[in-house]
Simulated assay, not measured.
Amino acid sequence: MVYDTVGVYEYVVPAGVREIEVALVGAGGGGGYVACVFPVEQGHSYRVVVGGGAAGGTGTDGRVVITPAPAPGTATD
């Protein structure tokens, strides 16, 4: 799931997923990057906040990428 428009979103963990990798890309011309893996439980929801670049700047808005990792032997859609 990619969130790349400024705003606040809700991510609900799909069935069969026990961890997610979250990659954060900073807004602006020199935005940073970090990725982490988090344990999760299906059905739990998380707030995702995407910030914007500075007004009048030449950079881009931030981006959040969530990649679910299914439990072994579990298929997800």
Rank of each mutant, 00 (worst) to 15 (best):
G62F: 04
T60P: 01
V50D: 01
G59A: 01
G56F: 05
M1W: 15
F38P: 07
G73T: 10
T74R: 11
Y46R: 09
R18A: 09
E10L: 12
T5V: 12
S45H: 12
T60H: 02
V6W: 10
G51Y: 12
T58I: 11
M1T: 15
V13D: 01
C36I: 07
Q42E: 15
P39G: 12
S45I: 06
C36A: 12
P70M: 09
T76M: 06
T58C: 10
G30H: 04
Q42C: 04
Q42L: 00
F38G: 02
A15R: 11
V6H: 03
G56A: 09
T5W: 02
G59Y: 00
G51P: 03
M1L: 15
V6M: 01
G53M: 02
G62E: 05
G43T: 06
V2L: 04
I20R: 00
V65G: 09
V13P: 03
V65A: 10
D61V: 01
V49S: 15
G52T: 05
V2C: 00
V25I: 14
T58D: 10
P14C: 05
R47F: 11
G57V: 00
G52W: 00
A71M: 15
E41I: 13
V49H: 12
R63F: 00
D4R: 05
G43P: 01
P68V: 03
V65D: 13
L24M: 14
R47S: 14
G73W: 13
G57C: 10
V12P: 01
V8F: 04
P72K: 10
G28H: 05
T60Q: 05
V6I: 10
V50E: 03
G57S: 15
F38C: 08
E19Q: 15
I20E: 00
G51T: 09
D4C: 02
P70C: 11
A55M: 13
E21H: 08
S45R: 14
D77E: 13
A55H: 10
E41T: 14
A75H: 10
V8C: 08
G52Q: 06
G26E: 04
V64D: 12
V64C: 12
V17R: 02
S45A: 14
P70L: 11
G32M: 03
